[in-house]
């Protein structure tokens, strides 16, 4: 199957034999083995806390996408590290700076003399 399709295919599936009535009855009859498997494959404790692992995964995926899209995605360096809030903050700071410069140097500005 390709990942492009919603419809999965498994050619080997057709060759699998069906279970007999007796086997079907036994299918979920051994909870001890399932419990042991679940316990054994429980998510291992990691040196990194979960939020840090999430961040690391996201950063790695972004890096791969940036590289493979030749910078088309996640290419500006902002979207990978900053939230939209920073854009607003920078815009506000710029606005205040422009107003201050205008007040200082514009027609009504303060004179040094």
């Amino acid at each position: 199957m390709t990942e492009d399709s919603d419809k999965p295919k498994d050619e080997a599936g057709a060759a699998d034999d069906e279970l007999s009535e007796a086997e079907l009855a036994q299918l979920d009859a051994e909870p001890a083995l399932s419990a042991l498997l679940k316990r054994s494959l429980a998510e291992p404790e990691d040196a990194l806390p979960e939020p840090a692992r999430d961040e690391l995964l996201l950063a790695s995926v972004q890096k791969k996408l940036r590289k493979r899209s030749k910078g088309k995605f996640y290419g500006d360096g902002w979207s990978t590290t900053q939230s939209r809030l920073n854009y607003a903050l920078i815009a506000a700071v710029m606005l205040v700076t422009i107003v201050a410069v205008y007040l200082a140097l514009g027609p009504t500005g303060f004179s040094l003399r």
């Binding site: 295919k9 498994d10 599936g13 057709a14 279970l19």
Partner: peptide, 17 residues
């Protein structure tokens, strides 16, 4: 997820166990 028929899924789980 696997694209397998119902009987095949059960059969594989049974054999796997």
């Amino acid at each position: 997820i696997t694209g397998l028929a119902a009987g095949t899924v059960k059969s594989r789980i049974f054999r796997a166990r």
